[in-house]
């Protein structure tokens, strides 16, 4: 085997080993890297009150209540469990019922959170507005498109 191919193999093995090591570290510190928990994960882990968390899920249909100006109450769900969220502040454009959302706040009890920040999560679907109208007209609009 020529010297240059020995070097090539050395470089490639080093890269693979380094990559594997890094990925092992990343996957074992998953809790520090995930941006949010789902309501089910939170309820499973029995997180005590007062802890600051980010929770991600969908805004439950017809659960948004406007209590006063800039004061909202809604439910966040992952289709298994849901949590009641209190929020005082401005909601982002994409925040609407059935849309994905991530909230940041402190837990009050098992099922309620006091949110300090609300982000809207956009999914990977891009579609012209005109097509949505067409689909709705023909009753082809699928629920999963939100």
């Amino acid at each position: 085997m020529s010297l240059r191919f020995q070097r090539l193999i050395l470089i490639l093995t080093t890269l693979v080993m380094l990559g594997a090591a890094l990925l092992l570290i990343l996957f074992n510190t998953k809790q520090n890297i995930v941006f949010f928990y789902t309501p089910s994960e939170l309820i499973e882990n029995k997180i005590t009150s007062g802890v600051k968390v980010r929770i991600g899920g969908y805004v439950k249909k017809s659960s948004i209540k406007k209590k006063s100006i800039n004061s909202y109450e809604f439910k966040i769900t992952d289709n298994k469990n849901e949590m009641l969220v209190f929020y005082y502040g401005i909601l982002p454009d994409l925040f609407r019922e059935g849309q994905g959302t991530v909230i940041e706040g402190s837990i009050i009890d098992q099922n309620t959170v006091n949110a300090s920040k609300v982000y809207a999560k956009h999914d990977e679907n891009y579609m012209p507005a005109s097509i949505k109208k067409e689909l709705e007209k023909n009753n082809q609009w699928k629920k999963e498109y939100k």
């Binding site: 990343l26 890297i33 995930v34 941006f35 999560k121 990977e124 679907n125 891009y126 579609m127 012209p128």
Partner: peptide, 24 residues
């Protein structure tokens, strides 16, 4: 794909057909 992120997942480079309309 590996972690929960606020950023949306890939629309084009995925195994199923791209979830972006052809006009876009």
């Amino acid at each position: 794909d590996w972690w929960n992120t606020l950023h949306q997942p890939a629309s084009i480079s995925k195994l199923s057909s791209p979830s972006i309309d052809i006009s876009m």
